[in-house]
């Protein structure tokens, strides 16, 4: 078990280093954008003096590396500074939005991940049959349609024509969980449609890849029925690639949902980011990007650890 812990600690360390590099990239990429808040706020009629005064007031006149370290120091303690537009603390502006995004992502994930794996197992079992082909075509279609398009199609049918679910997923205080799940069903369904295909196809591929291995043939020659060969003999050895794809898709659910949030007017972090970029509210942009990066790194780390844990050679050393 000692080696396993060391391995995890090492991955964690590497993740932190990656995060540090990403924070440098984020900070200086934002620096490189033409124009800054002072210009944006004062508009085109501003004189150079007023812009300079504004910059000084906002602290934008000091050298970038110093501001980077100040920003990083704050970020480590959860303080991302103040919004340049509203003056609100960035952490409080983001926290509720991020919680909303996590809620929507979990909602979609809880449906999509088991669905994808079960479907993947079924199509692997029924490979090269009509069911397999139809499932492949349908999932390919859903994966290759842009999510806003899927969203509008769902709205068209489920809320406009049949009026089963609301098209507007904006939240208000004091909603109970049933309400919440009901109001956010359409955006969640859209996300499910987008991510299921990828995970299902990987599950299918990972299992089929193993079907030629000697231990599957052995199971076959022992008279083990087909479904059990797949579920009991192939699947336990196929987890590593499946877990990696699941992690990638979970990361997408957190960081790639901007369009879906816009379509359904959902108050998530993606919408906040889009607004902040438009208003040149750099502290918020930087904080959002850093959170996205951390999510990606954390999920990939979890996937690494997960695939290590499913390897019996590492779980049960000699």
């Amino acid at each position: 078990m000692g080696t396993l812990l060391r391995l995890i600690a090492m991955r964690l360390g590497l993740g932190l280093i990656t995060l540090l590099i990403v924070s440098i990239l984020i900070f200086f990429a934002v620096e490189l954008l033409p124009g800054d808040l002072a210009e944006a706020v004062l508009g085109q009629g501003a004189t150079d003096e007023t812009v300079a005064a504004m910059r000084e007031q906002l602290g934008l006149d000091r050298p970038a590396p110093i501001r980077y370290f100040e920003w990083l120091g704050g970020a480590v303690t959860g303080d991302f500074g103040q919004s340049l537009v509203t003056g609100e603390r960035v952490s409080s502006a983001i926290s509720q939005r991020f919680a909303n995004t996590l809620f929507l992502a979990s909602y979609a994930a809880i449906i999509a991940v088991p669905l994808a794996i079960v479907l993947g197992v079924i199509v692997a079992l029924l490979r090269n049959t009509v069911f397999d082909r139809v499932a492949n075509v349908l999932t390919l279609t859903s994966i290759s349609s842009p999510e806003f398009f899927l969203g509008y199609i769902l709205i068209l049918f489920l809320s406009v024509r049949w009026q089963v679910f609301p098209s507007n997923a904006s939240l208000s205080g004091g909603m109970n969980l049933d309400d919440l799940l009901y109001r956010t069903f359409l955006p969640a369904l859209t996300l499910v449609l987008v991510v299921t295909a990828h995970m299902m196809r990987m599950t299918r591929a990972a299992i089929i890849n193993l079907l030629a291995s000697p231990y599957i043939e052995m199971a076959r020659l022992k008279g083990v029925p087909p479904w059990k060969r797949i579920v009991h003999h192939a699947l336990p050895n196929a987890w590593a690639p499946i877990i990696n794809v699941v992690a990638l898709n979970l990361a997408y659910l957190v960081t790639g949902v901007v369009l879906v949030e816009v379509v359904f007017v959902y108050p998530g972090i993606g919408q906040l980011l889009v607004d902040a970029v438009a208003k040149r509210d750099f502290p918020i942009v930087q904080a959002c990007c850093l959170i996205f990066a951390a999510t990606f790194i954390l999920l990939n780390l979890a996937a690494d650890v997960g695939s290590i844990l499913t390897n019996p050679r590492l779980r049960h050393p000699k």
């Binding site: 291995s213 043939e217 052995m218 076959r220 020659l221 022992k222 083990v224 003999h233 336990p236």
Partner: peptide, 22 residues
């Protein structure tokens, strides 16, 4: 129904023919 019960098989590489997960 015959396989494993009335006719059994022993493969060349036991290391590859035992499922590593069980």
């Amino acid at each position: 129904a015959l396989r494993g019960a009335r006719i059994a098989y022993v493969a060349q590489s036991a290391a590859a023919s035992f499922n590593p997960a069980h």
